[in-house]
Measured scan of single mutants.
Amino acid sequence: DRMTSQEAACFPDIISGPQQTQKVFLFIRNRTLQLWLDNPKIQLTFEATLQQLEAPYNSDTVLVHRVHSYLERHGLINF
């Protein structure tokens, strides 16, 4: 699994950072998509996403918020 070119453009700090940071991003992105796909008729809020993310992935709330906002803005969740 890899970041898309659009994700890389929107998250230059992640793509240029350590490999582990990219893996954390990918986990948060994929898990958020999975959470929404589990029940697409219900809006997936940032707060609900954060509550359902497993530790330690829920510890970087800023990154979780950025990923959630990106997915929502680009019509990948909550459409």
Rank of each mutant, 00 (worst) to 15 (best):
Q6L: 10
F79I: 06
H65P: 01
H74N: 14
P56L: 03
M3C: 05
L26V: 09
D1Q: 06
T45H: 04
H65I: 03
R29W: 04
T4L: 04
V64K: 04
L33E: 06
P12E: 05
Q51H: 12
R29F: 02
N39Y: 06
P18I: 09
L63K: 00
D13Q: 04
W36R: 02
R73C: 12
L35A: 09
Q34G: 13
S69P: 01
G75T: 04
S59I: 05
S5F: 11
H74C: 12
Q19H: 15
I42S: 14
S16I: 10
Q34V: 04
G17Y: 03
F11L: 03
D38K: 15
T21A: 13
I15W: 15
S69Y: 08
Q52D: 13
E7C: 02
A55P: 14
I28Y: 03
Y70F: 11
S16Y: 09
I77A: 00
W36E: 01
D1Y: 09
S5E: 14
Q19W: 12
N58K: 08
L35G: 04
V24D: 14
V24P: 05
Q51E: 13
H74L: 10
Q34C: 06
L71Y: 00
R66I: 00
L35R: 06
T32D: 03
L37K: 14
W36M: 04
R2L: 08
L53R: 02
S5L: 13
A48E: 10
A8D: 05
R2S: 12
A48V: 08
D1I: 07
T4I: 03
H74I: 11
R2F: 06
P56S: 05
T45K: 05
L35V: 06
E7P: 00
F79C: 15
C10D: 15
Q6I: 06
F46N: 04
T49G: 03
Q51G: 12
D60P: 05
L53G: 02
Q6T: 12
S5P: 13
L53T: 06
F27S: 08
Q34R: 11
Q52N: 15
A8I: 08
L53Q: 02
S59Y: 10
M3L: 12
K23T: 13
V67H: 01
R66D: 06
M3A: 03
E7W: 00
T4Y: 06
I28R: 00
Y57E: 04
P18F: 06
N30R: 08
P40Y: 04
A9T: 08
L53K: 02
T49Q: 04
L71S: 02
E7I: 04
L50I: 09
C10A: 14
P40G: 08
L44Y: 02
L35I: 15
D13G: 04
V64G: 02
F25N: 02
F25A: 03
L44P: 00
A9Y: 06
S16L: 11
A9H: 06
L63R: 00
E72M: 07
Q6V: 09
P56N: 04
Q6G: 10
Q52H: 11
P40A: 08
Q20S: 13
D1V: 07
Q51D: 10
V62Y: 06
A8P: 03
I42V: 15
E47Q: 12
L76E: 12
A55G: 09
E7R: 00
T49N: 07
Q19K: 13
I15R: 11
T4A: 05
P18C: 13
N58H: 09
T61M: 11
G17E: 06
L33H: 10
W36Q: 05
Q52M: 13
D13E: 15
Y57V: 07
F46H: 05
H68P: 02
L37A: 14
F46M: 08
N39T: 06
F79K: 15
M3V: 08
L71I: 02
T32R: 00
A48C: 09
I77G: 00
D60A: 10
L50Q: 06
L50A: 06
N58Y: 05
V62P: 09
Y70G: 00
Q43H: 14
E72V: 13
D38P: 00
S16W: 08
K23G: 10
Q22D: 05
G17S: 08
N58L: 05
R2D: 05
I28F: 00
K23W: 08
I42W: 08
N30E: 09
